[in-house]
Nucleic acid binder design. Structure first.
Lengths: 152, 152
DNA sequence: GCTTCACTGCAATAGTATAATGTTTCATAT
DNA sequence: ATATGAAACATTATACTATTGCAGTGAAGC
């Protein structure tokens, strides 16, 4: 998972879109955790960066982060976890993006899952109601294996 | 659907919990639309109420609305639509609460769907990863039947 | 009557996201 | 090299969503 950045750069090159420093840094920060990260956590980190770089005047503002996140989501490199208003790196940027998450209520970790049967069922359910599905959000909250065993 | 309030009062009585004026009013406002309602829309309505009632001093504040929403969600009378940070009345308050939504990107309407097969599949997927599922969020965004035909 | 506990009122603040506007950067074609 | 146009970025302000903490109130049970 550590070379997510390399993979991302390759993908962007293929697609002819630019991965700028701000976008790269946001992607990097999103990937540094295995749990969803809030936009303002990213913002704080980047503001700290700027200070360290001796550019106290150049303050990073929310739109910088949100624009980068929008771009990364468009490119399928990052997903938003709706139930937490937080963001997480996509673990298979090359493939389809019809996926779900298993989110641990204890440790906050989120595992991305992809399942053909689930995608099919969601489409079927939608069309059963005459509904044309475009995208879907599936988030399951509960206890991950390690937190479950600790709780026992 | 119009007697959702009556049903709610019955349910609360059975369970020995109180449905106070604030909670009743919030439930009423949530039910008045077929689309998800934001907490601050509810808040504005209730502030207008208070003014009309000639109680200009008694301002309704956010916690009043959020506390009522929390209560109503605990009782399964209202669901939160995570992808919109909005709330919607539950169409089968007596039954299970493992449900999903079909959300129209055009008109904003949201249809609640419940499906045993989907619930089962979600549980199966979770346990396949050693995950203990507690609750799930399923939201499908797309075009509802009437907006779909208009777009054609 | 008194206690207790859930509920509410109120003020402040935290956290998430976008609008509006102007400026910079960069690839490309001259 | 340089003009140009599109994409990206900076900046400020503001809108929207949600929570915390504490004080007061009122009804149910003793």
């Amino acid at each position: 998972m550590n070379d997510a950045l390399g993979a991302a750069e390759r993908l962007c090159a293929e697609r002819g879109v630019r991965i700028t420093p701000a976008r790269r840094r946001v992607l990097e920060l999103v990937w540094q955790r295995h749990a969803p990260v809030g936009a303002y956590d990213i913002l704080s980190e980047m503001q700290r960066d700027a200070e360290k770089d001796g550019k106290p005047g150049a303050k990073v503002a929310p739109p910088t982060v949100y624009r980068a996140l929008d771009f990364l989501m468009e490119q399928g490199l990052v997903h938003k976890v709706e139930s937490q208003n937080a963001y997480i790196g996509c673990s298979h940027p090359e493939g389809s993006h019809d996926c779900g998450f298993l989110i641990c209520r204890e440790c906050g970790s989120a595992l991305e899952i992809e399942d053909g049967e689930l995608s099919d069922l969601l489409k079927t359910l939608a069309s059963k109601h005459g509904f044309e599905a475009r995208s879907s959000t599936v988030e399951i909250e509960g206890l991950c294996p390690s937190c479950k065993s600790q709780a026992a």
